[in-house]
Design a protein around this nucleic acid. Structure first.
Lengths: 214, 214, 214, 214
DNA sequence: TATGAATGAGTCTTCATTCAT
DNA sequence: CATGAATGAAGACTCATTCAT
């Protein structure tokens, strides 16, 4: 239903008074419903039912189905960002080895995606998002690359030339590989442990290799 | 209708008369429509219209919307497989360096995904596929890992321990990174060229590094 | 829709909120529409329109077209049963003659079928009914035979041997003859009055004849 | 689909050259298909397939689906009429008793309806027939009443007053009771033999009873 | 503010009928 | 004459959204 009829005037947004509790319940319900049924088949009625509120109430807090998806994605981005910063803080304090640091990073992301493997893709690919959200997403990715670079700069064995670019690829790799692995829990060709080790090995090699080819 | 067609009956298959041309047009149209609107919003009517045939004709060749998606996915899998084998054949004959080989591989996959960046994910994630198709997909992935391993075994600089596992990660990395990069053409933090170089660097480092960490 | 509703899932039943009025309006409309167009050509949209509700509302109360037909048939069975019992009660109290009793029975059934002559057959013959409903129907017929037998036992002139079988034939005769007569109002070879008299004569002769042939 | 779009001009009727064989095959197939699926769900394609001809050929001989139904009904009427006359001729020659005569009549009709129990009702109730056909049907019924009267007049024990009316009811009774019994083969409350005996008993009593009530 | 019955545009799918070969 | 691919109107049903209470 890309373009269901817009019923009337641009809905009044009740922004400020959003009862935090209700909004939360709706978002949690929406995450579960989208995860289970996909975006298109995740009906607003089902979301409301699961959230334990009426459909009317849901529309009191979110002007449209799309708005729910956007809110969910923003929350997801914030979560990821938060997790990343926690990891960096942790590493700085604890003085782990590079290998350990990467291991923790990959494990963390794998965990995150394992909880709701489909959700991210659903929000990213199935939902027709407004441009603004894409910008936010892009910004978050760049920010993540810089954050990771900030940490890795501290490790002397890491090649420093073009570190931000390198970290961009690192972030992308971890994101997409962990997501991909989490998304197909039955199709395991290799075990979770092996998978993590291999990815860390790859990143380690990438980060510490002498020079770039060519 | 007293007895609407039973969903699960094996529909009488339109046999072999399937005018190859019509089937092709429908599939091409479907690819474009799914690419542009997603699976759920890619309506059969839109597909038929874009294919330049009536909706009735479309249903003469495909018993359901899902069947179109499955056909598309099968075609995609075959294409990828074909491309991979071509690449391997090429490499074996031409005696390229490992670096060059990887470069060509990454470039090829990036090209492939650039043509219809969303389609693969749409088919994989949005479409409720029958189990059989998932099996085929899984098999294809394993096959790809083995094929790549077969080629890389020829390079003496490649670490041979656990090569198939390594190649699994290589295949997954290339698949997901190129897809991800192709999917968001506007959000480029780094250029296409830089991206390819970085990925190749990473793979090269991974494949040739001395030992695994831990 | 990624996951169109599965046909066989037990739909969540709209519970007890069914505004009696709306349900009634839909059923009345459905009776008229089926009567006028038959089951297959009696579209749900037409029914909704005639009921003065939107198609969406109709589907809020009935999960499918078939469910409407089933509801209609159940109502019809209940009506017939009710009418039969009223007749029996009446006869027992009023001490009418056998002839008068039969007259009233035939007249009543003729009236009933005259209101919507086609409906019963449409529901019985055109609609693909679930097995359960057939059982109910069968049971109703047997019950009717027993009820009639219960009354006729009180008349001494009625032959008592094999009374239940006899009454089964009586019920079937009245049912099918009155329906047939009501169904073709224009094709009258004999008048309504004559028809009733003849049928009563036949039943009277049947019920009181000395012995069975052969 | 009461009123599927009439595509163009009133089809040219190829009346005269109808290959008898093809027409027959189509009608036989149509009878089976309607019997099995009902009128609405009995598609012309299925009929053609079953008849072993192409859909185009079918439309060469019948201008529309309805025309097939009409032809089928006409054939059915002719069959019934033929059977009735055979029976009369037989009875006149063989000098059977009234009881035997009725027995044979009821048995014959029961047999006829048992072959395709639903067909008659489908044609009569589900199909939107042109007025002309109804007239033919009505005429056939009157004719049957007269034919039966002609035979029964020969039996001295039969009450002669209002014989044609009486025979009309007899014909209607036999028609509707045998059809009803044949239509529900599983719901048997009484056996086939008992059923026939009871019906004959009823008719016999009716035909020979002294006077009519009133 | 919360509710949930009502709405109706839009979806997938079928099938009578046509017409170029 | 026969064929059967193509047509497209119409049907059952869904679901985002509104609004009276």
């Amino acid at each position: 239903m890309t373009a269901r009829k817009q019923r009337l005037n641009p809905r009044k947004q009740p922004v400020q008074h959003r009862s935090k509790a209700t909004v939360d319940m709706v978002l949690v319900a929406a995450a579960q419903v989208f995860e289970a049924h996909g975006y298109a088949a995740g009906t607003t009625n089902r979301i409301a039912e699961r959230a334990g509120v009426s459909i009317g109430t849901l529309y009191q807090y979110f002007p449209s189905k799309e708005a729910i998806a956007v809110a969910l994605l923003e929350r997801h981005i914030a979560d990821t960002d938060h997790r990343l910063h926690e990891w960096v803080g942790h590493m700085v304090v604890e003085q782990h080895s590079l290998s350990e640091a990467l291991h923790e990073y990959v494990t963390g992301m794998l965990e995150m995606h394992s909880r709701q493997p489909r959700l991210q893709h659903i929000l990213l690919e199935e939902t027709p998002l407004p441009e603004r959200v894409h910008q936010v997403l892009l910004e978050a990715e760049r920010h993540a690359a810089k954050t990771v670079a900030g940490l890795l700069r501290l490790y002397p064995e890491v090649r420093q030339t073009g570190l931000v670019h390198t970290c961009f690829v690192v972030v992308q790799s971890v994101e997409s590989l962990t997501h991909r692995f989490a998304a197909h829990p039955n199709d395991r060709f290799i075990s979770r442990t092996t998978f993590v080790i291999e990815v860390v090995t790859m990143l380690l090699a990438y980060l510490t290799c002498e020079a770039r080819q060519e």
